[in-house]
Design a protein around this nucleic acid. Sequence first.
DNA 1: GGTTCTCTGCCGC
DNA 2: GCGGCAGAGAACC
Length: 279
Amino acid sequence: MPGRTSTSAHASLIAKACRLIERSAHEPDLETLARDAGLSASHFHRLFKEVTGVTPKAYATAHKTIRMKKDLQTEKTVTTAMAKTGFSSSSRFYDAAPKALGMTPGAYKKGGKGQTIRFGVGECSLGSILVGATDKGICILTMSDDPQELIEDLQRRFKNATLIGGDKQFEKWMAKVIAFVDRPTKSFDLPLDIQGTAFQKRVWEALCTIPFGKTATYADIAKKIGKPTSMRAVANACGSNNIAVIIPCHRVIRTDGTISGYRWGVERKKTLLKKEGII
DNA sequence: GGTTCTCTGCCGC
DNA sequence: GCGGCAGAGAACC
């Protein structure tokens, strides 16, 4: 088609823009990217989104996150990593890090270093269960059919932490947790060490206010934390919950009343809801 | 808290 | 297919 740009030409134009974003030390602005592609800013923006599925800004942000993670792992200090990643100021860096990494840059660099996590694997009515705790409280509760998989998952999540088997005190906690999972009655009184971003913590706190035997929708939770339009972010935060059952993300259902997915399997979610007399 | 930038919708060519 | 403008909202300083 003369005078028109073909689809493949579009794809290579956008691919070139992606490479430019990746190569640049500082995020190139929309105007620069558009000029480089020989298009107007507005049209370039539309085209970029059509081809990649994300906006140029979102693409640049995602790439910056990858770089931030790499630099934090390879650089000696957080300060040098910050300089290399290309943030304009340290405050911007520390501002962006929790969103991008789920923790402060220092904590990410340590990768759980310095943290000691006691853990145990047992069996409950929902299959194999892993419970882990720092000296502050329970930081992880996961479930699976395969106990080995639970341990591998724990090692992945806290790769620099010292993982040790539970002691006598921990055994007691473990028994209490299993009893709670099997009969999730009213309250749970062991301390929790909830690790996540500020946003995730707000969502999880909101989940904890859903009473036993009741459900809420993602929209309800979004409204509760004062972000009525952030339903997708809320759903993501529910999916990132590390402490199953105790933080009752299983009580969240779709607006139409149907049961949505569950990180530890829909069958487990249904079983939990049955235990609470909801279904 | 003001300024700049991003993003989207809409319209015209 | 492409450019441009307006307005809302987010990001930045």
